[in-house]
C-alpha cells in the first residue's frame, strides 16, 4: 500500500501515456488470442519494453549507490553474440549459463574499476561501453549471427500461459531481484551506501562489496536482456543490439523517481518506468506521424512525465540548496 502511494505519480503518468496511445490508435487496447499467446498493441508495449525493463532492474541498483552503468547496451551485445554463437551447438541451459556468466564477468569488471580502483563510474563503465561493442563484433566477426535453435527462439517469441516469454522473464527477474535485495539487508545497505558512503563505511557496511555486487547484478541483467533481444530477432546483431538502450534504462530509473545522486530506489517503479518509455515509443509508431518527429515527441513526453513528479523534484532541490 505504501509502495503504491509512493509510486502514484509514475502510475498516473503510465496510465496517461496509455490513454494517449488509445487516443492516437483506437485499436490500442484491443487484444485477442492467437497461436497460444495474447496479441495486441498493449502486449507489444510489455514485450518490446522487456529488454529495457531488464536493464533498469540492474541500473536502478547501480544508480542507488550513486553510480551509473553506461556499459549495459554493450553487454547486451556481447551476451547476445555469445548466446547466438552457441545456440545451435549447445543445449539451452549451457547457452544461457554462458551468456549470463559473460554478463556477470562484465559487471564484475565494472565493479572492480569503480569499487576497488575508485574510478568514477561514468568513466569506468564508458570503457566497457566502447570496448564491449568491439568485443561483440569480434565474436560475430561483424556479421549478424543467425541461429535456428527453437529453444533459444522460445525465449524471445514464445509464450507462457499466453504471456510473451520476455514479459515472463522480466517479472521473474523482478521477483528474484526483489527477493535478493529486499529479502535480505542488501537493499538497506545499497541505499545507505548511496545515501552516504563515508557514514555507511564507518557504520561497518562493506561498501566496496556492495558496490561490486550492484555492478555485477547490472551485468547479469544486461546479459539476460541481450539474450532476449537476440532470441527476438533470431540472431545477434553486434552493431545494433542494445545500442543506446543504456540511456533508456537510465531514463527509466529517473522516471521511477530515483535520484542520480544515489539513495532510495524502487525496483517495481524502475520496471514501470521502462514500460512507460516503451508505451511512448509504441504510441509514436502507431500514431503514423512522420519518423522525423519521433525524437521530438519522445522528448516532450519525457519532459511532461518528469514535470508530473515535480513536487518531489522541487523538494529535492530545496534539500540540496539548504546550507550544510
Amino acid at each position: 500500500m505504501r509502495a503504491l502511494r509512493a509510486g502514484a505519480p509514475q502510475l498516473l503518468a503510465f496510465l496517461a501515456v496509455l490513454l494517449a496511445d488509445r487516443l492516437v490508435a483506437p485499436q490500442f487496447l484491443a487484444m485477442h488470442w492467437q497461436d497460444g499467446r495474447l496479441f495486441g498493441s498493449l502486449v507489444d508495449v510489455f514485450n518490446r519494453g522487456a529488454p529495457v525493463a531488464l536493464l533498469s532492474l540492474g541500473m536502478v541498483l547501480v544508480v542507488a549507490t550513486g553510480g551509473i552503468d553506461l556499459s549495459v547496451g554493450a553487454v547486451m551485445a556481447i551476451a547476445g553474440a555469445v548466446a547466438a554463437s552457441l545456440a545451435d551447438s549447445q543445449p539451452l541451459p549451457v547457452v544461457l549459463a554462458a551468456a549470463l556468466a559473460t554478463g556477470l564477468v562484465c559487471g564484475l569488471w565494472n565493479g572492480l574499476l569503480v569499487a576497488v580502483l575508485r574510478i568514477q563510474p561514468i568513466v569506468a563503465t564508458l570503457i566497457l561501453m566502447v570496448a564491449g561493442r568491439g568485443i561483440a563484433q569480434l565474436i560475430t566477426e561483424g556479421r549478424i549471427i543467425t541461429f535456428a535453435s527453437a529453444d533459444l527462439a522460445f525465449l524471445g517469441g514464445g509464450a507462457l500461459l499466453g504471456v510473451p516469454m520476455p514479459v515472463v522473464l522480466v517479472f521473474g527477474m523482478l521477483l528474484v531481484t526483489l527477493a535478493l535485495v529486499r529479502g535480505t539487508a542488501l537493499g538497506l545497505m545499497i541505499e545507505a551506501t548511496g545515501g552516504n558512503a563515508r557514514a555507511s563505511a564507518l557504520a561497518g557496511i562493506d561498501t566496496r562489496a556492495v558496490t561490486l555486487a550492484v555492478y555485477a547484478w547490472s551485468g547479469l541483467c544486461a546479459a539476460l536482456a541481450g539474450v532476449v533481444a537476440a532470441a527476438d530477432i533470431l540472431g545477434a546483431d553486434a552493431n545494433n543490439a542494445g545500442l543506446w538502450l543504456e540511456l533508456d534504462a537510465i531514463l527509466a530509473v529517473v522516471v521511477a523517481g530515483s535520484s542520480l545522486l544515489g539513495g532510495r530506489f524502487s525496483l517495481w517503479l524502475a520496471v514501470l518506468g521502462a514500460f512507460l518509455i516503451q508505451a511512448m515509443n509504441t504510441g509514436i509508431l502507431l500514431s503514423g506521424l512522420p519518423p522525423e518527429l519521433n525524437l521530438v515527441v519522445k522528448a516532450a513526453v519525457v519532459l511532461a512525465v518528469l514535470l508530473l513528479q515535480s513536487p518531489r523534484l522541487a523538494g529535492l532541490s530545496l534539500l540540496l540548496r539548504s546550507p550544510r
Partner: peptide, 9 residues
C-alpha cells in the same frame, strides 16, 4: 552530517 547519518534513510 558527512560521517554519521544517512540523511535520506
Amino acid at each position: 552530517k558527512t560521517d554519521g547519518i544517512v540523511a535520506d534513510l
